[in-house]
Amino acid sequence: MSWWRTPASSTQVTHGGRLWLYVLAAIIMILLIIPTFLVIPMSFSDSQYLEFPPETWSLRWYNEYFGSRKWMRATVVSLKIATATMMVATILGTMAAYALFVSGHRLAKRIFMLLITPMIVPVILIAIGTFYAFGKFGLNNTLTGLVIAHTALATPLVMIVITAALRSYDLNQERVAVSLGATRIKAFFQITLPQIKFSVVTAALLSFLTSFDEVIVAIFVSGGSTATLTKHMFSALRDYIDPTIAAISTIMVLVSTVLLLLTQAIGKK
């Protein structure tokens, strides 16, 4: 009864005075989360079409997904590409972030900005550009091509995460290690890397997700036997509306959520 009269914080604003803030926050959270969660009940529908709420329940669309060679092949393609992207982007991004952080070169800041442009430029432009560039080198519809394109998208994330980690790290530790007799490479692997390893793992998971969830570039540069899961989902939605999509989406939401929770748990350590 008197709950809204009690102060919400040390500012003496009461919970009642904050009511508008609570409502606004609730609306924003609902708008952000509902679309994601709507798909979950739809995936357990027994109907031929996507419908909400479902009238009868079943697991048939999950069976459909796991039983389809086409879906399974696309899933394997996506996992392969995401794994390769994760490895290449994490290594390249960490190297770039470290080099630019340590160098102190007058162009270092600009090179950093240049390398993170893929995060700023609309992805559709990157997709179109990549499609034409890959055409010249015969990289369209190849796994290599997709990994290259996804690496370009994931590297900026890796660089930002690693640079943030290096900011709170005392580089003198590496100097000490060198003065004690370690080569610079040794000093990096024995002293620096162990201390930023959680950020490296976080960066790796984020770059995996970047590739695994990516659809726009994939639509342009993948196809046939190299089509990714997301590309298949997109064309499936366009051609026939089929609740298998909902089942796959649910699985992807689950995978993404688990990975993100994992990165958070790691970050807390």
């Binding site: 005392d170 100097r175 000490v176 060198v178 003065s179 004690l180 007799g181």
Partner: peptide
């Protein structure tokens, strides 16, 4: 520096 055999103590 790693071949100079010099012990070093930093401010930090």
């Amino acid at each position: 520096p790693h071949k100079r055999e010099v012990g070093m103590v930093f401010q930090s």
